[in-house]
Write a protein that binds this DNA or RNA. Structure first.
Lengths: 200, 200
DNA sequence: TTTCTATCTTGACACCGTAAAGATTAATGT
DNA sequence: ACATTAATCTTTACGGTGTCAAGATAGAAA
């Protein structure tokens, strides 16, 4: 039998994945650089060859989770032509993602340190998950022929609701009553049916 | 001049207030029990005479902040008879509270460990801030003569939006575009006008 | 006054992030 | 093929953290 090789192989990727695993298991409060290193079978200072501090590892982990998040959002509206249903499915996917991984919410938005900017002018460099949301919501607005002046506040209202539900169900302090799908369905129905809803 | 007395006087209260001050200054990541003890001019193990853990201090701090939060919400609707304006002011106060103290949001909902339960049956032991919200929202619903079956999902939709805006503006990762007051005003206007639509 | 008890201090321990210095091995140049 | 370089990992060390145990202090009760 041969002992473990001195070099790991692809430690950087392993650290990111092990770190995300640790977040899932213990949450942000149980996270530590040394535990991540141990999970990879490596010394506690080894991560410093790939990240200058723990913050940089957290950021890389955040980017990786963000990719998964974006993919989940995009998948949820794939092939859906009806803008009403698209926005409904997108919101459901948004919330369901954090329902499945509750500790991702505080991690992504309060500890990962990734920068999510949403300038109205610069449409190119918006944060990917939000860009998906933005495009889908705008298609909905256009299909309802709503004035473009209300574009941003309307988009923010929709996004805030979805984000708020995700925040509430992932909070350790709050027990969310009933079913969030009902609340979300209600919001969709009451917010969108000012004009006629269906389009064949 | 006389040296410091061996006994502090009211250390428990001082620790809670110093802890909240530290949260405001450095956020949850800069928080430590030893810093709080030092702020009170006391040894690093002194807090253990009043709290069994750091978690118990955090919980006491959370309760204290929750009282301030509840007071701010109640003050915002004092003497307001119009349910529409009441819910609008309440939501504004909800968000403004966290805008003023951004680090309270992750602290309260992800680190304080306070238990906020909102059973539909037991109306008595609901979490105070939510109780204020609930009562005001129900007055609004009743004034609009909406079916009571939609009570809970409707309430949740409103609460989620306010909570979501607070989550977004306090997130270190997200730069909130434009003015949240516009988004909130938009939600209020478009969410309540199913029967009395006042669109141009 | 004497005893009791709550409160605070000191000291120790394991765990944490981080830096410096050395070991090991892959990559590169000749 | 060999020597040199550069990248990766280990070891050791340091200050900061939560927590516990033992001892010091002083206010309260007897």
């Amino acid at each position: 039998m041969h002992s473990k090789p001195y070099h790991h192989g692809d430690l950087r990727k392993s650290l990111i994945e092990a770190g995300i695993g640790l977040i899932n298991e213990e949450g942000i409060s149980g996270f530590s650089l040394r535990k991540v290193a141990a999970k990879c079978g490596v010394s506690h200072a080894a991560p410093y060859s790939h990240f200058k501090d723990v913050q940089e590892l957290l950021a890389a982990m955040g980017d990786h989770v963000t990719e998964q998040f974006t993919f989940a959002l995009q998948s949820s509206i794939e092939g859906q032509e009806n803008p009403d249903r698209a926005i409904q499915q997108l919101g459901t996917a948004y919330i369901a993602f954090f329902e499945e991984h509750p500790s991702y919410f505080p991690f992504l938005f309060y500890h990962s340190g990734i920068t999510i900017q949403m300038e109205e002018e610069l449409e190119e460099d918006t944060y990917p998950p939000f860009a998906v949301f933005k495009n889908t919501a705008r298609q909905l607005f256009r299909s309802k022929r709503l004035p473009l002046g209300n574009d941003t506040p309307m988009l923010m209202a929709v996004w805030s609701t979805v984000h708020g539900i995700a925040a509430l169900i992932t909070s350790k302090s709050i027990h969310y009553p009933g079913n969030w799908r009902e609340a979300w369905a209600f919001f969709i129905k009451s917010g969108g049916n000012e004009h006629e809803a269906d389009r064949p």
